[in-house]
Amino acid sequence: MELAYTLPEVSPALLITAETAGDVPAREALLDRAMGPGRKRKSSEKLRRGRRPAEGLAFAVKEETGLLVGTVRLWNVSLGEGGSEALLLGPLAVDPSLKNAGLGSALMRHAIQEAARLGHRAILLVGDAPYYARFGFSADKTGQLSMPGPYERHRFLALELVDGALDGEHGTLRPTGRKAKAERLSLAA
């Protein structure tokens, strides 16, 4: 099912679509522009490296011309050794020329809605608490959880899509998503 709809609250010329393999170079260039060279050293990257995004949860925003101007992806993780499954959101990025136009908010609302529709129970992220609070994220449920590697605890946030989904969860997040290399090999066969 091809997902594509306009963002009239931002601009009728922008579309959120499911990310495709052809979007990867443009997405990487956008992430470099929006986040800078240190983006690959972040703790969240350790959970994404070598993995594919969660099925159906990688989105691109494109202008009518096809230019990619926004991206967000969600990733499968477990909450500690043998813990429940959850999603890790990130990175969320918007072309710097479109900052403060509402595009990031539209991407967040869409990602949360799709994750809930697909039956996921919780989303975690590392980010700016005041920005993500408007979508329901807080540090209230992450006290017994941790990220691999260094991170700022007050920026480790969660949103329960199902009430109580994070109750009693503890430990360090672990990647559980599909491995990228295995998928490439199976496609080549």
Rank of each mutant, 00 (worst) to 15 (best):
R117A: 14
R117K: 08
Y131M: 08
P130L: 03
L173I: 01
A158S: 14
T71L: 02
E2K: 12
R27E: 14
R121N: 04
A34T: 04
N100V: 02
L118M: 07
R48G: 04
L187K: 13
A180E: 13
K42A: 12
A189K: 15
E2F: 11
L30Q: 02
F59E: 00
S78A: 09
G22I: 08
G164S: 07
W75P: 00
P53H: 05
P175L: 02
P150M: 15
P91N: 10
M1Y: 15
L57C: 09
A26K: 03
A158P: 05
L124R: 02
L173G: 06
P148M: 06
L159A: 08
A180G: 10
L166I: 11
L7W: 00
G82Y: 10
A21M: 15
Q113M: 11
A26C: 14
A101P: 02
A158T: 05
V126F: 01
A188I: 12
S78P: 07
G119E: 01
L7H: 00
G164H: 01
L145V: 12
F156V: 09
A158C: 06
G80S: 00
R41V: 14
R48E: 09
G66N: 09
A122V: 04
S11H: 07
H120D: 08
A29W: 14
S146T: 08
E55G: 02
